[in-house]
Write a protein that binds this DNA or RNA. Structure first.
Length: 648
RNA sequence: GCCAGUGUAGCUCAGUGGCAGAGCAACGGUUUCGUAAACCGUAGGUCGUCGGUUCAAUCCCGACCACUGGCUCCA
């Protein structure tokens, strides 16, 4: 996180001041109970606040009441938050005597010339730019939430600190309603609804963690989304392709993903003969020797007995790597679809007349995410991407990118998605040639075009420098899960580097070969994450076109001719591809209604003697109750029409 | 991967160093019913796995696995 300027701090909202003050009070409470604790920092957050501690005692939720009790005492003492400034030396000495080593390090972050301010409440003194509320007595409603760990400065090489999370509000009522909202969020949690509605399941023992099994009802969601994507992409001039789930090592060396991303890929499958295996080992050793040599040459500490130049060694490394890949026999599960699509582009000679070429596939990818990162459907190890790659000329790029952006908005409208943030990631010119490919003009040109598209569309977006992919700028769409976690739900990336790595060209009007630009886009992200998100967005109450069980016919009683009437309704709807079931059991209608409501069936058609006689059905909508009896034909036609239009 | 927490029936959860419990769901029967629970019964478990302490462990201890809250990561 970037340091806030003092000006920005001054503008901190009332709530943020309150929470920041609560963080200080929590730290002072902890120090009263564990005087040996060393402190890091304690900022306010969107949901509350936290403070990081280094302490031999391991915090557990059992400690919360004691800490809260101490905090309540501090509230009662109604201490004043007093600001003071010290010189750098005074500050350094203060923390040195207190043994507050993390604070000493943080002190180093403050730029020369900026004031070094402290805040004191009671005995507690903290390096802090503020601002705070006036007195501890102003903090009336707070609650400790959880204990977690966090690396110092967010770097996993640094020691892990214990982070205490809490929240604070202006008053008790607001705290209570926030707690209620959290509980409501938990009820919407896609993991919970997913198992209640039998949408997906995990079998960690036999299948593996992060590898979801789609149950029949969840598969309905998957296939409805796929149908939507296929319809939409067809109309937008995409063509569909299909590619295998694996590819040779050479593929990912060429794309540049190996060896840098090898860790997030499943380990390779070795299909080597014995002599090939030996040859590979020799080459690997040779490569390791060369890399060591290169390192020593680059650092220039040791003498260079070989007489080789850095360039020569680099060349030998590349040559060895090529030899390794030539042995073949090593396959990777694909972690992305683009390389396969690039090979499809390369499969035939291309002319400028073929462009834009839009290759679409719901491709299944596998990524070995670290175990602690797995999270329901939102973060998994097997994922199906709503992927497509658009190969185009620079002249075509603006229109293509605009069309992709419009497709996003079309989808968001269908799903009634209103709360999202578009994040436009751009490059940092000072890092051209390192973090970003050295194409300053292409960077400028594409970023300008992307920015213009965003402005024209009137979408709110935030521009984040230095966050682009190495091959081009990108737009990510951020959404929030029911429990407040932020996720990228969709992504739209410009690529003007990787096509060249694969030597992709098209023959242009002037009879020269040119490298196309490539747009990677996934407006529906992956099935896993998108459906996880939709489950929470709708709280499981899907619109008719998406609902796993769209209609259930409930009979009042189980006798003929009522059952025959119900069955004929089922048959008619099935002929129109409506997902419909009938409940013709002996249960009472109350029980049947409850079963159907709990299963979140979208439309219930209650039929009894009265309906049979009049040729009616009584319609009940999930969550909306009874909407009355209507002629059968009218109701069934409306159901079919609503599904066809994918009505919200 | 790291720190912490959790793991009892399909689900939600009780419980105890000495025979394993409830509600819902499931299954069998009775009931013939108008919009969120009719009634009776049956079955369901190596208490995550493995090891240790103990006369005796679901309970205490350890390791592992999985999940959860974070951190790191997210091409």
């Amino acid at each position: 996180m970037q340091r806030k300027t003092l000006d920005q701090r001054e503008q901190m909202s009332e709530l943020m001041r309150l929470r920041h003050s609560a963080a200080h009070m929590m730290a002072s409470a902890v120090l009263r109970l564990w005087p040996e604790a060393r402190l890091d920092i304690g900022p306010p957050t969107e949901e509350g606040f936290y403070y990081d501690f280094d302490l031999a005692h391991r915090f557990s939720p059992e400690d919360f009441p004691r800490i809260e009790e101490e905090m309540r005492k501090i509230v009662k003492e109604n201490q004043v938050f007093e600001k003071s400034t010290r010189s750098r030396d005074e500050a350094r000495e203060w923390f040195a005597t207190k043994g507050q080593t993390y604070k000493l390090e943080r002190l180093g972050d403050i730029p020369e010339g900026e004031a070094i301010s402290f805040f004191q409440n009671g005995d507690f003194v903290d390096l802090c730019a503020g601002p705070h509320v006036m007195r501890t007595g102003n903090v009336k409603a707070f609650k400790l939430l959880s204990v977690a760990s966090a690396y110092f400065r967010g770097n996993e090489k640094n020691p892990q600190l214990q982070r205490l999370y809490g929240t604070a509000f202006k008053n008790k009522e607001e705290l209570e309603s926030w707690i209620k909202l959290q509980e409501e969020g938990k009820r919407r949690d896609h993991r919970r609804i997913g198992s209640e509605m039998s949408l997906f399941a995990y079998d960690s023992e036999f299948v593996g963690p992060g590898l979801p099994l789609w149950l029949p009802k969840g598969t309905v969601l998957v296939e409805e989304l796929e149908k939507l994507a296929k319809d939409t992409e067809f109309q937008a001039g995409y063509v569909r392709v299909r590619t295998p789930h694996i590819a040779k090592e050479k593929m990912y060396r060429t794309s540049g993903h190996l060896p840098y991303y090898a860790e997030s890929m499943f380990p390779p499958m070795e299909m080597l003969e014995e002599d090939e295996r030996k040859r590979r080992e020799q080459l690997n050793e040779k490569r390791a020797d060369l890399i060591r040599l290169l390192e020593s040459l680059e650092s220039a500490v040791s003498p260079n007995p070989t007489g080789l130049t850095v360039e020569q060694v680099r060349h030998d490394i590349a040559k060895t790597e090529t030899e390794i890949t030539l042995i073949g026999g090593r396959y990777y599960l694909k972690a992305m679809n683009c390389p396969h699509h690039h090979r499809i582009f390369a499969a035939e000679p291309r002319s400028y007349r073929d462009l834009p070429l839009r290759l679409a596939e719901y491709g299944t990818c596998y990524r070995y995410e670290q175990s602690g990162e797995l999270f329901g459907l939102m973060r998994v190890r097997s994922l199906q991407m709503n992927d497509a790659h658009i190969y185009c000329t620079t002249e075509q790029f603006g229109d293509e990118f605009r069309a992709v952006n419009e497709m996003y908005l079309k989808y968001f409208k269908i799903f009634g998605l209103e709360k999202y943030r578009m994040r436009f990631s751009t490059h940092d010119p000072s890092k051209l040639g390192q973090k970003f490919v050295n194409e300053p003009e292409l960077w400028k040109k594409t970023e300008d075009m992307v920015r213009q598209v965003l402005i024209d569309s009137g979408i709110d977006f935030v521009e984040v420098p230095n966050e682009a992919a190495f091959y081009g700028p990108k737009i990510d769409v951020q959404v929030w899960s029911a429990i407040g976690r932020e996720f990228t739900i969709a992504t739209n990336q410009v690529d003007f580097a990787v096509p060249a790595r694969f030597g992709l060209t098209y023959r242009d009007r002037d009879n020269t070969d040119k490298t196309p630009l490539c747009i990677h886009r996934a407006p529906l992200g992956t099935h896993e994450r998108f459906i996880g998100f939709l489950i929470e967005h709708y709280a499981g109450n899907f619109p008719l076109w998406l609902a796993p069980e769209q209609v259930r016919v409930l009979t009042i009683g189980d006798e003929e001719p009522l059952v025959g009437y119900a069955k004929s309704i089922v048959q008619e709807l099935r002929e129109n591809f409506v997902r419909v079931e009938a409940d013709i059991t002996t249960n009472k209608i109350n029980g049947k209604v409850q079963d159907a409501e709990r299963a979140k069936v979208h439309t219930m058609l209650v039929v009894g003697g009265r309906d049979l006689e009049a040729g009616n059905v009584s319609v009940r909508l999930h969550g909306k109750g009874n909407v009355g009896a209507k002629p059968r034909a009218e109701v069934l036609a409306d159901i079919v029409q609503s599904i066809r239009e994918r009505r919200a």
